[in-house]
Amino acid sequence: MNNDVRTIVLAGVGGQGTILVSRVLTTALIDAGYDVKMSEIHGMAQRGGSVSTTVRYGKKVESPLVGKGAADILVAFEQMEAVRSTPVLKKDGIIIVNDYKIMPLPVASGKAEYPDNYIEELSKVFRVIAFNAGQAAIELGNARVMNIILLGAMVEAFEMGRLDWDSALEKQVPPRYLDINRKAFELGRSMARADNK
């Protein structure tokens, strides 16, 4: 049942702005007439833990969550969170990963090392679009729009361009930040396009 249902997983660390992305994403999907369900794990996220949001859409969605081997696309806001979430992806799944590291406590306290080969290893198995969205956001003028750059990349990679993203951004982003978020969204799309060539 529900073979037309598609699944997007957003993974990051508490405070990285996954919530705004999930809001813009679900707004665009609902406006396009899809049935949408979204599941998020809060709880201890505020204390630097991993956060994960699942968005599912289609004609009729039953379960708001999925298990392993079930997601079409993973948008990781941080390298290690990409690795942590890969079991959720289908075999032909796509990963958009922010080329950025947030040290978990075992690394910060010297008990473990943060590996350097994550993106390389992910690329051996999945189609991976990796770039430093944080740096791109700073160059654009606001470090916080990193999240919307990643959303733009996802929209391009997952061929969701026909949805009304401009309206979704307008509905979810405060007016004074709308302009820079629009630019961030377009930048993300062009970065994913460049990656595809």
């Binding site: 630097g48 833990g49 198995v125």
Partner: peptide
């Protein structure tokens, strides 16, 4: 149900 094996391990990120 098989999921793809990536040759990398995520370090725990406890709260």
């Amino acid at each position: 149900i098989a999921s793809h094996e990536v040759n990398a391990q995520a370090i725990p990120r406890p709260p």
